[in-house]
Design a protein around this nucleic acid. Sequence first.
DNA 1: CTCCAGCAGATTGTCAACAATCTCGTCAGC
DNA 2: GCTGACGAGATTGTTGACAATCTGCTGGAG
Lengths: 222, 222
Amino acid sequence: MPSTPRPGETGAAQVRHGLRAAILHGEYLPGERLVEAQLIERFDASRFTVRAALHSLATEGLVVLEHNRGAQVRKVSLREALEITEVRMVLEGLIAARAAERVTDRQASELAEIGVLMRHAVEAEEHFRYSDLNHRLHSLLREIAAHETADQIVETLRGQLVRHQFMLSVLPGRPQVSLPQHERIIAAVRARDPKAAESAMREHIASVFEALRTLDYLSGPA
Amino acid sequence: MPSTPRPGETGAAQVRHGLRAAILHGEYLPGERLVEAQLIERFDASRFTVRAALHSLATEGLVVLEHNRGAQVRKVSLREALEITEVRMVLEGLIAARAAERVTDRQASELAEIGVLMRHAVEAEEHFRYSDLNHRLHSLLREIAAHETADQIVETLRGQLVRHQFMLSVLPGRPQVSLPQHERIIAAVRARDPKAAESAMREHIASVFEALRTLDYLSGPA
DNA sequence: CTCCAGCAGATTGTCAACAATCTCGTCAGC
DNA sequence: GCTGACGAGATTGTTGACAATCTGCTGGAG
């Protein structure tokens, strides 16, 4: 599946999106070399196009380029993952605050609905469903906040974290911890209280931060 | 001055730095087209190299690329400038908090020194000197915090703001407003009080935010 | 006088070939 | 048996030429 070819897009953007998706899906692991010839075959693109995509992803921080040694998927150390999570904490805090200022009645009930579904998912122990709702919640908040700059940075950072976040979602007991946090965020935004929304979001991500740090001891200093 | 040629660097990075510096210095104005042929001559580089640099700066947000229409310096609207300032507010808040946790005695006295020099500069109405010290203060805080992720994002955003910040520094009365704010930040970091440092920094940049917004009415909706 | 089609010049997008560099296996010397 | 130099193969860096597209001008029709 060489990614749906979008007619409106130039080849470079197609390859970039495809490769980005592949890395995010874990098809290429951190540290793995991205050989141009392979990518040319996979995406049926020219070397020029592949090269442009690699450079672009390098600036985005998803791959690293070394002179005369080509590209490889960037390894994100746990220290970096923690830094990224800290940055996400303050940025999503900003987003939550703005969402509380701008939320419409319609959006407020959408939030409420997600909250209810989340509780059901946790009670039924449907972890995948809960993880999906989690994503929808953060996504909806960003949509409500309509803060392009913060939005784009958060999205970029999320890309760099995929592997670590995957590990997190496996941690048992997490949903029970995060559900009330999510509910507090939803309540604060619905109450149109920016400060409460920001601090609820920050506490939530701070708890993710701690969980990530704990994970370090579990997996050891690889 | 085609930028000092660094021997250790590949051509692409040289052109990128040079062009970046040129844009930041205002040699190319927002909206101005960056014609490849001109850049080839200016930096004495190949088209390939110039192209890579443009793509890189595009991902960084300093230029925009349109298909078959080449590159131009990105115009940052006031709305975007305000968004960027908000993001800087929370990120530099995080940096200030971390700086308060990690500051050494030696760094603390460096901060104190900058504070004294700032006061002198304001009293002597040496605006340029104050602006320089301002830069040094924020820079030192980032060094103390040693938060690579936040640091890099802030630096990138600062680049996108150059034009607007230039306008700000011209505003009369600003130093009198910002001096006490700076002093509070320094005091909080020296007291090793993360929360106080964060809120002092946030208040400072929130005030910059308001000043920027005011500027809108002065210059009109161009 | 105004508007639209068509053309020439300029500019960018793409490609294929060549040059430089690195990696890794091999072999001679100690 | 071990160390280090050598070289073939693989991979990336760079260049120049060619194709596609856009922009602004010219000229004719209404």
